[in-house]
Amino acid sequence: MKILVPVKRVPDYEAKIRVNSEKNGIVTDGIKWIVNPFDEIAVEEAIKIRDGGGAEEVVVVGIGPEDSVTQLRYGMAMGADRGILVKHDGYVDSDLASRVLAEVYKKGEYGLIIMGKQSIDSDANQTSQLLAERLNLPQACFASKVELSDGKAIVTREVDGGLETIAVSTPCVISTDLRLNEPRYASLPGIMKAKKKPMEELTLADLGVEDSTKVRILRMNPPAERSAGRKVEDVAALLAALQNEAKVL
């Protein structure tokens, strides 16, 4: 079995993101780009499954400009076997991403897709579900534990109010939540090895995918700044402020 792991290039989660003056994008000067943290967890899980004998190959796939190769190479430095970059310079919404990934999936013989539950830039939390439906596969989203056995994935899901365990048939789409695992760091030998691993480049046209989207961003706005309040002396002063100023007690 092969595992497909979509990997997205996103700004570092510690970066302070600012809207540009045209209000149609963010200021990218000085931004460090990383693998979407949830996708890193997905790569880690896929590698663990492979190394435990549950799969033969882990393939990372990205959609984006040429630079996205860096994030795919990082996934391969962690241990993925090869990469596929679907080159696309334009805007990608969840719908377009899911159509691209569905075609990539159909071209290989994959038995499982593991991916992040959301990307920390667009925060939409849609692509894994869209992809599952498009491929008519079951899904197990927000996973904190994954076990594969006898053509089934037993997945513990982080849901409102607790932990739910669902058994779905494989192939399926699993989306990762934070506590699934601790992703390893790419080692130096891993980084050296990754440079020699195969990287395939495709276009939307190669996959027969139409370049269209369903959600258009009209403008981007900075959030209202919340002004800092004040420091209080001690617990008594805090209680007084809550009672008399904020009137919340």
Binding site: I17, D121, A124, K214, L218, M220, P222, P223
Partner: peptide
């Protein structure tokens, strides 16, 4: 198309939703 996690319905009918951990509030049209 789907607009996720909207926080407001704007006067022009567009929907406001946070991106980048709320550092950006995007007005989107489906």
């Amino acid at each position: 198309g789907q607009a996720s996690d909207i926080i407001a319905v704007n006067d022009d009918g567009s929907l406001r939703r946070p991106m980048y951990a709320g550092d950006v509030l995007a007005d989107v049209e489906i």
